[in-house]
C-alpha cells in the first residue's frame, strides 16, 4: 500500500533532513519564479550604499558612533534611536567615555540590512540575538565538558 510506504519513509527521523531540504528547495524555486518581488521604495530603515567607498557594504556614512540617520517606526517611543550608544548600560557608558575599545566590532560580520537596523534602533532584538548565541554556547560547553 502506498500509504504504508509513505509512512515508512516519514517515520524515520534520518529522513527529516532530506524532506525539509526538499521542501525548502521547492519553495525557493517557487520564490525564484515569483521574482521580481516588488521593492517598496519608502523604506522604514533607509540605507544608502556608496559603491565608491572601500568599505562598500559596511559603509554606513557619517562619523562612527554618533547618530545614524534612520526613520524609525515609532519615533515617539524611542527619542534616542539612532545613537549606537543609546543602549549602553551605565558601566559601558563609563567605559566608552574613558577608553577607546568599546563597540568596535558590533557590525563586523556580514549581516546585511537587518543587522544595521538592529543595532541602531532595536534594543530588544539585540538582547534576543545575543541570547541565542549564549544558549548555543551553553549547550556546546555543556556537551564538551560532559565529554
Amino acid at each position: 500500500m502506498i500509504i504504508q510506504r509513505i509512512s515508512r519513509i516519514i517515520s524515520n527521523y534520518e529522513m527529516i533532513m532530506p524532506l525539509f531540504a526538499g521542501a525548502v528547495s521547492v519553495l525557493f524555486v517557487v520564490a525564484i519564479f515569483s521574482l521580481p518581488l516588488p521593492y517598496y521604495e519608502e523604506q522604514l530603515y533607509p540605507k544608502t550604499i556608496d559603491p565608491a567607498s572601500p568599505l562598500n557594504p559596511y559603509e554606513r556614512g557619517g562619523p562612527p558612533f554618533t547618530q545614524v540617520t534612520i526613520n524609525d517606526q515609532y519615533p515617539e517611543n524611542s527619542p534616542t534611536a539612532g545613537y549606537v550608544t543609546s543602549y549602553l548600560t551605565p558601566f559601558s557608558w563609563y567605559l566608552a567615555n574613558t577608553t577607546l575599545y568599546l563597540g568596535t566590532t558590533i557590525v563586523a560580520h556580514p549581516g546585511g540590512i537587518l543587522d544595521e537596523i538592529l543595532y541602531n534602533t532595536r534594543g530588544l532584538d539585540t538582547v534576543v540575538e545575543t541570547t541565542i548565541l549564549f544558549i548555543a554556547f551553553a549547550i556546546a560547553s555543556y556537551l564538551y565538558r560532559k565529554g
Binding site: 500509504i3 509513505i6 509512512s7 515508512r8 516519514i10
Partner: peptide, 11 residues
C-alpha cells in the same frame, strides 16, 4: 497503525 494514521491525515 500510528504512522499510517498520520499519513492518512496528512494526505
Amino acid at each position: 497503525s500510528p504512522f499510517d494514521s498520520v499519513t492518512v491525515q496528512m494526505l
